[in-house]
């Protein structure tokens, strides 16, 4: 009857030497060479510590129902009409104040509890002699992120458009995009920019100056912008028709970069370190076996017996 090898297991063998022997020194050196170089390799090849990472989230955006609107009139100079939801600003305008009809609606398309888009319509009544050549419009939003750190800010969408021909309507269909100059943190509450874009309580004209508003806003490290590649300026307004701004502003899913937390950093470093370490372990295991088997360093080989068997031997 033919015999097959059905089972096998390695036999362990011990090598004995003093703690201050060459063999002990060799083992210490081998251990140092096994565990430290992988760390150096992982570090020197860059990216050991994950310094920046990103995730996707749809922000919770709500229109704050704050509007600041300036229409530039032509062809004679200096003509403009303005209106805002801030009473102080309206008081400052005097004769240039013209109250438009503003209607807005936020829509949650997929019923997930987060708004997906804003429909904004502004109808500015005009006299037949007034012609709109340009508009400036600020809408403010509250912008919140929840997945990593709870980030709350008040942001704005600034729209400026002008055309050489007097307009009847401006159609805008764009997205409110997040602009980050620095990554967000991976946890905690971030309310650095939870301050209003326009100081509506202030009675001073300076606080409603567009250059001042934009300058203060751009100081922020995290902002939103209205991204609209194709604003459409429609011309040909009948004498009695109002000037209309028709805007659709979407709140898209954003890719947000953040600083990974401690454990996330450790996790990625660990993966890199261990994968390099495995190779070193294997190589040095071979080297050590060679060194001890061939008695390159002097040791006394002992066959290690299972515990039970040695006990028996002692008895006999």
């Amino acid at each position: 009857m033919a015999l097959y090898e059905l089972f096998s297991h390695p036999v362990e063998r011990g090598y004995r030497a003093g703690l201050c022997s060459k063999a002990a020194l060799f083992l210490l050196l081998a251990a140092a060479l096994t565990y430290i170089p992988p760390l150096l390799v992982a570090f020197r090849s860059h990216g050991l510590w994950l310094k920046r990472s990103s995730y996707e989230e749809q922000p919770t955006v709500r229109f704050q129902h704050q509007v600041l609107f300036v229409a530039l009139l032509g062809p004679e100079r200096g003509g403009f009409l303005a209106w805002s939801t801030f009473p102080a600003f309206n008081r400052l305008q005097g004769g240039h104040l013209r109250v438009p009809l503003v209607s807005t609606r936020e829509e949650d398309r997929n019923q997930d509890g987060k708004m997906d888009m804003l429909h904004f319509k502004l109808e500015l009544p005009l006299q037949s002699t007034e012609h709109v050549l340009g508009v400036q419009l600020i809408l403010t939003f509250s912008y919140q992120l929840h997945r990593m750190s709870t980030f709350v800010m008040q942001s704005m969408a600034f729209l400026q458009s002008s055309f050489a021909v007097p307009g009847s309507q401006l159609y805008v269909n764009g997205e409110l995009r997040l602009q980050q100059k620095q990554p967000l943190s991976s946890g905690g509450l971030d309310v650095r920019y939870n301050v209003s874009v326009i100081n509506g309580t202030s009675p001073f004209a300076y606080d409603y100056d567009l250059t001042h508003i934009v300058a203060a806003y751009q100081e922020r490290n995290v902002t939103t912008i209205l991204l609209d590649p194709h604003p459409i300026w429609l011309v040909g307004r009948a004498a009695e028709a109002p000037f209309v701004i028709n805007a659709v502003i979407r709140y898209p899913v954003e890719v947000i970069s953040y600083l990974p937390g401690f454990w996330e950093m450790i996790k990625f470093a660990w993966i890199q370190y261990v994968s390099i370490l495995l190779i070193f372990l294997w190589v040095f295991e071979r080297i050590k076996r060679f060194v001890f088997q061939n008695q390159v360093v002097t040791t006394i080989p002992v066959a290690v017996m299972p515990q039970g068997e040695t006990y028996k031997e002692h008895l006999s």
Partner: peptide, 22 residues
Amino acid sequence: SKGDGICSVKRHEVQFGVNAIS
């Protein structure tokens, strides 16, 4: 409002679900 800002006889119908100011 009319073109000159004075209250107009024409009125704007309130649409369901649409916030408005005039």
